[in-house]
Nucleic acid binder design. Structure first.
Lengths: 214, 214, 214, 214
DNA sequence: CATGAATGAGTTTTCATTCAT
DNA sequence: CATGAATGAAAACTCATTCAT
């Protein structure tokens, strides 16, 4: 599984290999239990090279978080077409989210578990990403309320908590969805849409939402 | 801060003091960063005594998880009267949950963050507790469906995911709720009830839920 | 040569053994080149014990400097009887100094070479000791001038430099004296007395050397 | 601060730039703490080039010592006119010595502190230079004795120690003199002349200090 | 029972040094 | 010539864990 020991690679490439190895190791073992030795070996390089390029264990971890946070947000963004109705956007976003976390379980472990468990420098990094997603969801809810011709002011005090709960539920279901095979990713999204959108709709109007194309 | 150094305490008491110290230290520093030295000192005993009673760091951590998992489940159980309607039970359970996690932040950190972040032996321990709670919620949903004269079989495939999502949302909101003061604990429960119950009700019937004695 | 590996010694004793080993190693190899491994092995203990008792390499080095500086000053002090005439005091002090440095070459290397070569924290420690000795010598010169019924005010501006030069010369001769056997220690003292005291006498009798042109 | 990165310099020039950088770095940081990376960067060349020209850290350090020792001896030599009387030669030599060490503090640190602190290969190098200076001073003393029409044989056994003490005092005063501004360099020389020459004169006029009790 | 004394094994990190291009 | 890429070896420091008393 370790990369083929090719010699003399350009720095940018080697750095990505190191980050790959680091994400896997941090995700598997946890931040503290992961040793730089193991990461270096998995990356197929010597430890000094890891330090030369990434400075320290902390910096390496931060680099992992940044790369994976960016990748996750982009995956969700790319899964959504902003010209579609809000419910469709949420549905697509959820599916992209579950698909990405299922495909990159170590990255998800780093973001969801490790980064939050090891102090401010790292937690803050992930909190920023999370806020971006919560903001996206919040905006979707507001748009949905507007589409339903509801007065958004009335909902405003609830929206923050709702978005927070929705994102929390999604994060929680990610682990659940990733246990079984790919089908469940879609199912998870469906479950959550029903759970969330129907609830929201009920708040605002009263009609359950159903996933498109069966 | 450390317990008063009283000599000759019965073993059971000493063990609890050690677990108190361990939970606080594990919660504060994380499993790996917590040192047995610090725990022993905080407990007011010598290190060999910790080993005599609790065998190893792993066993000590496991003992912490077990004790706190049990305490949390009991807190939720004690907050609920099974002779009341399902929605009331859920509402009471959520409030008890948020109250307990707010009162025992280190214990909650151990269960929610540390235990899940450090490999199977510990994660499994917490998963067991979680399943107990999910089962409780699942049963509440089934009862609610029955109270609403709905065919529970029709819902069965959804119920697992719903309960999972509800619990996940609750866990997620626990951190959110614990940031501000006690009022928010209640608010968190209310938000979650609206989010969840209204959605469920919608699925089954179509009536929003409102907290009692607002 | 390493201490006999006796187990379970009281802390105070072990600490002295460690300092012995550290002084020898620092003196022999230099501060940076000395490894904690080597010191621990020479002391006949494991490295963690060295850290447990002396905290860090820096602290260990500082402890060495303090102990040896104190020992050297005390050796000189004990060699001098303050009720004797000034020249006799200087003679006795010099002999004590040369004897002590000859008997503890590693300690002298630590104080004279290593401590001054590795930055403020350490240099300051030695500078304090040196000032104590310079002050002692300065006072002897003043007393000698008074005994010679000379006006000390006239000399005041010179005395600082003279004491400094005398101490410097002594430090320099210490290495020279330590090369050969014990006899040379006495000879070194005699040489220095001749060098210094005769010069001082000349000064006080009003026959200073004056620089050419201006 | 680093030399301007000009391409294609003749080897001799590049080597001098490297030595400049090395002397500064060794003087500032100490032999062990100085890293080849820092030296190469300060010299404005790549690390392999340093190795190509100077072989190893040890060789580089030795080259520094040799160059600076030679420079110091030459500075003293050039400051002295051998056709003048001995005391004048000593006075001029001391002034040249203090001036050179004040102007090249890093070089002086390398010679006086670093080289002597890091084992035989280097200490020997400096010892050679020192002996050259001691020999020069010894010869001056002998000449002075001859000028004073004294039998030099009588003094022979003392002269070595006197020269040693004089040089040691000078080395010691170099640090002292370099703390304040240029004026003190001259003062240091004067102090030392007074100290030394007067003492010598005393000796030769037959008024040596004699140790008590034989 | 309780503890001061002690350590094996492992951690992160740094550095002098060398190739392949 | 010149350099970016790469590493073997070792250093300081920590920690869970155990005896001897």
């Amino acid at each position: 599984m370790g990369a083929v020991k090719t010699k003399r690679m350009p720095r940018a490439v080697r750095e990505q290999q190191m980050l790959d190895a680091a994400v896997e190791t941090f995700g598997r073992r946890g931040y503290m239990a992961a040793s730089m030795d193991e990461i270096a070996e998995l990356a197929g390089v010597s430890k000094p090279l890891v330090y030369l390029y990434l400075n320290s264990k902390e910096d390496l971890f931060t680099a992992c978080i940044r790369r994976e946070a960016k990748a996750l947000v982009e995956a969700v963004r790319n899964g959504v077409r902003t010209d579609l109705p809000a419910d469709r956007q949420l549905w697509d976003g959820l599916r992209a989210f579950f698909a990405h976390t299922a495909e990159h379980p170590h990255a998800w472990a780093v973001l969801h578990l490790q980064a939050r468990t090891h102090g401010e420098p790292f937690a803050a990094e992930v909190a920023a990403m999370r806020e971006e997603i919560v903001a996206f969801v919040t905006q979707l809810i507001v748009v949905a309320a507007r589409e339903a011709h509801r007065d958004p002011d009335l909902l405003e005090r609830e929206v923050a908590g709702l978005a927070e709960a929705l994102v929390g539920a999604a994060e929680s279901l990610a682990a659940w969805a990733n246990t079984a095979d790919g089908t469940t990713a879609r199912q998870a999204a469906a479950t959550l849409m029903n759970f969330a959108w129907a609830g929201l709709g009920n708040l605002m109007e009263g009609r359950p939402w159903t996933p498109p194309e069966a």
